[in-house]
Simulated scan of single mutants.
Amino acid sequence: MPLLLGVVLLAAIAAAGWYGWSQWQAWNARQQNQAQQQLGALEQRLDTLRRDQHAQGERIQDAAATNRVLRDEVLGLSQRGALLEDSVAKLVDSTHQGVAALRLDQAELELHLAAQRLTIAGDLPGARQAYALAADTLHGLDDPRLLNVKQALEQERAAVEQLGDGPQAKADAQLTEASAALAQLPRKATVEDTTRPSWQRILSPLIDVRPSGTRVAVAPAQRAAFENALQLELTLARAALERNDRPAFQGAMTRAAAWLPRLWPASPQASAVEKQFGQIAALPLQPDLPAQGSTLRLLQSVRSRPAAPTPLPAARAHDANPGTGDTP
């Protein structure tokens, strides 16, 4: 009996040992299987990570290449911008020079017009207006070379202002005054009664006694012809005055003065008018302006000298860092 119990106990221990060993073997197999599965999963994850790393490296390389292309484009755009700035600066400078040249042409034309108004037509108001236009034209230019030109123009304008109405207007006023004085000249010579013989004083109401050598016209037809000739000479003098022809004006006034003794007898009034005609003939018709034309000559001298070139703005340097945006 004890033996049987020993055998049963031994069998139970053996069965328990076998069962434990089999359970341990099964657990060990499960652990190894789980470890292998985990290892396979890790290997798959590592493969996935390697593929992702490779793709990420390729994307980084593509990004670096793209950054290099963009950097080159930015450099090209910067250089193109600098060239555009230079072109715009040159265009602005050429436009400014063209406008300045146009205004200088206009000022020179206005100065020519003022000189012609003075020398040819004797039109002082027109000359003053032309000088004012030239001053306005030059006022809008900031060229320092024109400083002397503007100063000379102001001096020339002041000299023209001092002329007043001008020598032509003065000569015309004196000619009009002398022509009006002709109507006041006495037709007969005034002789004191105390100096005349008694027979002349007795016959004076009936007979007009004149010297035989006198040239004064007596016949109405002859007198009318002489008066017409005198008025013709005065008209010719006014026409010569209008066209600023001094030789023709002097000739007409001299011939008009020669007609006075043929129309009126010698008297203080006739002598005064004849003397006035001679003074009018000697009047100058051109204004005495030493500064006339100085502005035009200075302007032409300035335009003959080339202007200093306007400095263009320097192109900005766009030096980009070669390593910017690149990944080695």
Rank of each mutant, 00 (worst) to 15 (best):
G323W: 02
L298E: 04
A308I: 11
R316P: 05
A272E: 08
S304G: 08
E154Q: 15
D319R: 09
A308G: 02
E108G: 05
Q279A: 13
R145F: 03
E43S: 07
L234Q: 11
A239N: 08
L260P: 08
T137P: 00
A181W: 02
T194V: 11
P328W: 03
R71P: 04
A89N: 08
P290E: 09
Q184E: 13
G126Q: 05
L182H: 06
F226E: 15
D105E: 12
Q184A: 14
V160M: 02
A89Y: 05
E192M: 09
W264V: 06
G213L: 09
A317I: 14
Q38R: 13
D62V: 12
A63G: 05
Q25M: 13
A181Q: 15
T235C: 01
G325W: 06
L260T: 06
L109W: 07
P309K: 10
D143A: 10
A132V: 06
Q34W: 05
Q31C: 04
Q231I: 01
Q32L: 12
L4M: 03
P211W: 04
S267I: 04
A35C: 01
L285I: 06
R117D: 09
P247F: 07
I120A: 04
P125A: 10
Q155P: 00
A101S: 15
A35F: 07
Q56G: 09
W21F: 13
S271W: 06
G6C: 05
R117P: 00
P167C: 10
L133G: 07
D208Y: 09
L299Q: 03
F226Y: 12
P220S: 07
G98A: 15
T137I: 06
E192K: 11
